[in-house]
């Protein structure tokens, strides 16, 4: 498979000519018309790669799943690109108009012809976004059909993408990756910890109701402190706390089990931890005072998870948040059981 980029002046000719030529994206099955518009072969060969196919478009997959799979496929085949190369419009416009011209057309339904009721300006904007680069510095990487696949996988590991999930994939990717903080590895790590925190507790976050407000909160904190100086845990804690605060009931829904705590014999004294009485399904949120009994015969502990920026125990707080009375928590010095939440 040959990868080519588009010559800069050909790119300009194609973009500028869209008001006259947009119909060709709907009518022309192959890209031979491009040479007529540009007055020459618009492509320059970049390099060859082993053949590969993107996710099938007619296999009943959702759009989110197609995009999700394509991130992994495209990046695995084009991982040799440097970010500098991958930020070049000529390359992605070349791929969209060259090797993957037919795929991109079908991905957006251009092969089905123009909707006569559609607004011409919107059609042209759509082509500009999908086949070329348009918008701001970050946005442009994410609107091009193929570039966004590469960049999403470049920024997020395969595991991270799994945490993000295929549902409504593009909205999530676009919302997150147009944020400035995402470029910093540590901040990105904190963001992923935030997502994992809820995922591990079986809680599904909504991009509009939870993730965006949490990112806005992080941005707001960035007005007072240089976010890049914070640790991953601190970044995660800011976002978790915000989601807990604004949506405590809707988000935190971890079932609390009533458990019988086993006897524990400590040196010299047989100590029985009483059966925990559970009066309600309340779980630990920021600001709560949590009392825990040692299951190893040690002294009881009291913690109040709050602004972890000022504390040294974000990992303890992470372990407590979302837990109910009766839940066990493992700290560095042993196992504890939550006996009271106030």
């Amino acid at each position: 498979m040959e990868l080519s980029f588009i010559k800069e002046h050909a790119l300009d000719a194609l973009k500028k000519g869209l008001p006259q030529t947009f119909g060709k994206y709907f009518t022309e099955r192959d890209n031979s018309w491009l040479a007529d518009i540009c007055g020459e072969n618009p492509f320059v060969k970049f390099r060859g790669v082993p053949d590969f196919e993107l996710a099938p478009l007619n296999a009943g997959l959702t759009e989110g799943k197609i995009d999700f799979d394509n991130c992994k496929i495209l990046y695995s085949r084009l991982s040799f690109l440097t970010p500098r190369q991958a930020a070049d419009e000529r390359f992605w416009a070349g791929l969209c108009h060259g090797t993957f011209y037919g795929y991109v057309r079908r991905r957006w339904g251009y092969d089905k012809g123009i909707d006569p009721s559609a607004d011409t300006a919107k059609i042209i904007t759509g082509i500009k976004n999908r086949f070329f680069f348009s918008g701001g510095a970050r946005q442009r990487l994410l609107t091009n059909t193929l570039s966004k696949y590469w960049w999403a996988r470049k920024i997020f590991s395969s595991d991270d993408l799994d945490v993000l999930g295929a549902t409504d994939f593009y909205t999530k990717i676009f919302s997150v990756m147009t944020r400035s903080f995402i470029g910093n590895e540590k901040l990105r790590g904190g963001f992923m910890k935030f997502l994992r925190h809820f995922k591990e507790r079986g809680i599904t976050l909504n991009i509009n109701n939870h993730v965006r407000p949490a990112m806005s909160e992080l941005n707001k904190r960035g007005g007072a402190v240089v976010l890049d100086c914070l640790s991953e845990d601190e970044v995660a804690a800011i976002m978790i706390e915000h989601v807990e605060k604004i949506f405590p009931r809707k988000v935190i829904n971890v079932p609390v089990k009533v458990v019988d705590v086993p006897k524990k014999i400590s040196v010299g004294t047989a100590k029985i931890i009483p059966r925990v009485e559970v009066s309600c399904g309340r779980t630990v949120k920021f600001g709560d005072l949590v009392t825990m009994a040692s299951m190893d015969g040690g002294r009881p502990r009291h913690y109040r998870p709050n602004d972890t920026l000022k504390k040294n125990h974000p990992e303890i707080f992470n372990g407590l948040l979302g837990k109910g009375v009766g839940s066990t928590v493992t700290l560095k010095d042993g196992k504890y059981q939550i006996t009271e939440i106030k």
Binding site: P83, R84, A86, A87, G136, A137, R138, L141, W151, K154, I155, M177, S180, F181, I182, G183, N184, E185, L187, V226, D228, C229
Partner: peptide
């Protein structure tokens, strides 16, 4: 002392302390 460096075009952002 910190140098904050950022290139939005390539989603690069890093600090040097």
């Amino acid at each position: 002392y910190i140098l904050h460096a950022e290139c939005p075009t390539t989603l690069y952002r890093e600090i040097f302390c």
